[in-house]
């Protein structure tokens, strides 16, 4: 492998650019399409694309998790929810668009404003990369015998976040059980809704 650093840097930049453009196109298409199946599939693709992008940013652990969780688990969840609810999205009343647009533009403007003072992308000396982040790289080999720094930090320095994360999953499981499990209407209890006749079965569209 005798590739000049300039060339490989350029290639990486080109790949990043292509991925980001694709991400944008996919997101737009997800916004536009009313065909929920297509939207769910696109969201899987969106996750995979972002996973690829994470690899190009050296975040291999994140990429792996995003591919497994974002493209895998999320897509499965959405697919099953879609099958249990509706396949197509109906048009919305046009009144929503202006409000949404204003909110979105304000938020976008705030971020562009912030970006003026941001350190350059990839700057090793930016506060974020030089201070605590760098200290993790320094100290991990001496304090924790795990070559993967991300794993080391997850399990040790910020282990309590990881514990919280486990709790989040547990809570989500508990919430879903409360919503759909035993005791919830489909778990054997009748729904006392007014127009129950046509939707008591839930399920198919």
């Amino acid at each position: 492998m005798t590739v000049s650093p300039e060339f490989s840097a350029g290639a990486v930049a080109a790949i990043e650019l292509a991925l980001l453009t694709l991400l944008f196109v996919v997101a737009l298409q997800m916004l536009k399409s009313r065909h929920l199946f297509a939207v769910v599939m696109l969201s899987g693709i969106y996750s995979l694309l972002s996973a690829a992008f994470f690899v190009s940013l050296d975040a291999v652990d994140v990429a792996f998790t995003e591919a497994a969780v974002g493209a895998g688990v999320s897509t499965m969840l959405m697919l099953s929810a879609m099958l249990l609810t509706a396949r197509r999205e109906k048009p919305v009343t046009p009144g929503r668009a202006p409000v949404a647009l204003i909110a979105v533009l304000i938020v976008g403007a705030a971020l562009v404003y912030a970006s003026i003072d941001m350190p350059a992308f990839g700057d090793a000396n930016s506060p974020a990369n030089a201070y605590v982040g760098q200290a993790y790289v320094e100290r991990t080999p001496n304090e924790i015998a795990v070559p993967n720094i991300v794993t080391a930090v997850l399990a040790s320095y910020r282990g309590f976040d990881t514990l919280g994360e486990t709790m989040v999953i547990f809570t989500a499981g508990l919430a879903v059980m409360l919503l759909l499990g035993a005791g919830a209407p489909r778990g054997g209890r009748e729904v006392k809704d007014v127009d129950d006749a046509d939707n008591g079965k839930g399920g198919n569209t």
Binding site: L57, D58, A59, D61, V62, T65, E66, V69, G70, V73, S74, L77, M78, S80, A81, L84, T85, A128, N129, V132, G133, Q134, Y136, V137, I149, V150, V153, L154, R158, D161, T162, G164, E165, V168, I169, T171, A172, A175, V176, L179, L180, A184, P185, G202
Partner: peptide, 30 residues
Amino acid sequence: YSNPLPHVLILTAIVVGVATTAVGLALAVR
């Protein structure tokens, strides 16, 4: 090396995100 800290944070955030998705979709089904 790239900064590991954002990776750690986002690993947590991904999991939180999927948990929220699951609860939201369960609600949609209900």
